[in-house]
């Protein structure tokens, strides 16, 4: 198949890798945050606001902020490099970090909705049957919130695939390292005679989006049935 050039395939695979790692890494934190937000405590509104922040922040400004914080000469970035050898800037891991932060609110919102809709009576029943907090979380709460978890993961994944501003600002546009699909489209447009490539990549992005929509609905239907709702 000569539809895509090796460079384009590289951008596609890189995009998929960055988006899936971002979703997977953010998920445990999203679950913890959603659990916290599904109950009442002082400072809940503040935490809720912080979680929603990436939704309203300009991505480029956020990317710049990440660059300042995680730059190897900066405070946290320097510390991580010196003590753990972890570098985010100009690496695909940096793109993961930026994508994870930007899609975090999608995951939290979806999981939180599922948690708030849960039947607390089942939790009580599990308690009287001897199940501890962690036991109930793993065996009752999360399995029943599975449709919400999946919905959140899919929305976040789709969002991560489209992330542009934060990535280009924070980790630049390096082929094979940080040049994801949106960045590849942008690069193609900057290149004389690159319109055809840009069109192909855009078409690919649109097909991908439809595939996810279809996959998401199939998975949701299946899990919702299984959860007995």
């Amino acid at each position: 198949m000569r539809f895509l050039t090796p460079d384009e395939i590289e951008a596609l695979l890189l995009s998929l890798k960055i988006a899936s790692v971002a979703v997977a890494v953010a998920m445990p934190f999203a679950i913890a945050t959603a659990l916290l937000l599904s109950r009442n405590f002082p400072g809940k509104t503040l935490l809720d606001g912080i979680v929603q922040l990436p939704l309203v922040l300009p991505p480029v400004a956020m990317g710049f902020l990440l660059l300042v914080i995680f730059g190897t000469r900066g405070g946290l970035g320097g510390f991580l490099k010196d003590h753990f050898g972890i570098v985010f800037v100009f690496r695909w891991t940096g793109a993961v970090l930026a994508s994870a932060i930007f899609t975090f609110p999608f995951q939290v919102r979806s999981i939180r909705l599922a948690l708030e809709a849960r039947d607390s009576g089942l939790d009580e029943a599990a308690r009287t049957l001897g199940a501890s907090w962690l036991d109930r979380l793993v065996n009752i709460t999360l399995p029943l919130a599975l449709p919400g978890l999946i919905a959140g993961a899919i929305t976040a994944f789709a969002g991560a695939l489209g992330e542009f501003g934060a990535i280009i600002t924070f980790v630049s546009n390096i082929p094979g390292e940080t040049r994801t699909l949106p960045l590849a489209i942008y690069t193609a447009l900057q290149t004389p005679g690159g319109e055809a490539e840009a069109a192909r990549l855009s078409a690919l992005s649109i097909i991908l989006a439809f595939l996810f929509l279809w996959g998401a609905q199939t998975i949701m239907r299946h899990t919702t049935e299984k959860a007995g709702r």
Binding site: D119, G121, L122, E124, A125, A126, I140, P143, L144, K226, A227, G228, R229
Partner: peptide
């Protein structure tokens, strides 16, 4: 045993 049984649906 609760009035509404409260069986785990999954």
């Amino acid at each position: 045993v609760f009035q509404d049984a409260r069986l785990f649906p999954h």
